[in-house]
């Protein structure tokens, strides 16, 4: 009597399925979220109501629970959800469906034979939303909204490793705003921040989705360009240079203009680490500053041996 109350009182979805995956029990939580009443669903195949669950992984895991009496776990991380229920109380996040953590386990008869399995469904939308926020704060630069240096460095190492394995081209552009200190000094830090934001957007709009632009330091930006040779990277740098040079940054009543210097490097057999690739772009950037700014320098040609 008390046990059967638990079934409907818990803030967790519980479904009991027979060997053919027909619904045997359906608790109140499931009714509330699916709008499907027990009398409609009991005795019917689960897949009649949730055809998207009819997948190799779901079937395999259910078979395993019947065969071994083990558990199967469908985590939110990997599956997002098993049942497409509407998400609510999502802390302002944009999940369309309730994020779920589901577990399947065995139910035995007197002879220890598994004749039924149960499935629990837990709403983890709040946790997933919180995690999403944490990931954003961890990977994005607060001011400009583009990736931060930490994320960039992780990606740089990943792309470097990919190059080592598959020998694909990889280039890098280091960007520094010319005389940025003057803008801050003569127009105030708000103007400086405004320029940083606008510039970040300007660059972000001009690169491919697989490229990564990050704020590397104060007024320094870095573009990671997978599958890109140095010649293409130089062309992109020039495209960016012109874009910035001709842009008018309208801050309140001020029409500000900036230029930037860039250094470009590409991976080759002489470049033995991600740091070395970064250093080459940084050296080239220094060179373009030295040569008069608002220009692009490429790393030295590979020494033929």
């Amino acid at each position: 009597m008390i046990f059967s109350q638990i079934f409907d009182m818990l803030d967790v979805g519980i479904v009991i399925l027979d060997r053919d995956l027909n619904v045997f029990k359906w608790n109140r939580w499931m009714t509330t979220h699916s709008k499907i009443h027990p009398e409609e669903v009991i005795g019917k195949p689960l897949f009649d109501f949730f055809p998207d669950l009819n997948t190799s992984w779901f079937l395999r895991n259910c078979k395993s629970v019947f065969a071994f009496g083990n558990f199967a776990f469908f985590s939110q991380k990997l599956h997002k959800y098993c049942f497409p229920f509407k998400a609510y109380n999502t802390l302002g996040s944009d999940f369309e469906y309730m994020q779920q953590s589901c577990t399947v386990g065995p139910l035995r008869d007197k002879n220890n034979k598994v004749n039924y399995i149960y499935m629990t469904v837990q709403d983890v939308t709040d946790i997933a939303a919180y995690e999403k926020k944490l990931i954003t704060t961890n990977t994005k630069d607060g001011l400009t909204g583009i990736f931060n240096r930490r994320y960039f460095e992780t990606k740089l190492t990943e792309e470097f490793d990919r190059h080592v394995r598959y020998d694909r081209p990889l280039s890098l552009i280091m960007i520094d705003i010319d005389h940025f200190k003057k803008i801050n000094d003569s127009h105030g830090h708000q103007a400086g921040d405004f320029i940083l934001k606008k510039l970040a957007t300007l660059i972000d709009e001009r690169i491919r989705t697989i490229d990564i632009v990050s704020r590397y330091g104060g007024e320094e930006f870095c573009c990671l360009l997978p599958e890109t040779t140095i010649d293409s990277a130089m062309a992109l740098a020039e495209f960016l240079r012109i874009g910035v040079e001709t842009e008018i940054f309208q801050f309140k009543d001020k029409r500000l203009r900036i230029t930037m210097s860039q250094g470009v490097s590409e991976i080759n057999s002489d470049v033995d680490s991600a740091e070395a690739l970064l250093k080459l772009a940084d050296d080239a950037l220094y060179e373009s500053k030295r040569m008069g700014r608002n220009r692009i320098e490429r790393m030295p040609e590979k020494q033929e041996t």
């Binding site: 895991n61 395993s64 071994f68 009496g69 083990n70 558990f71 199967a72 776990f73």
Partner: peptide, 13 residues
């Protein structure tokens, strides 16, 4: 994870 869960479950089970 999936194959691990099944293999461990099979043997322990």
């Amino acid at each position: 994870l999936e194959i691990g869960n099944i293999l461990i479950g099979a043997c322990v089970g």
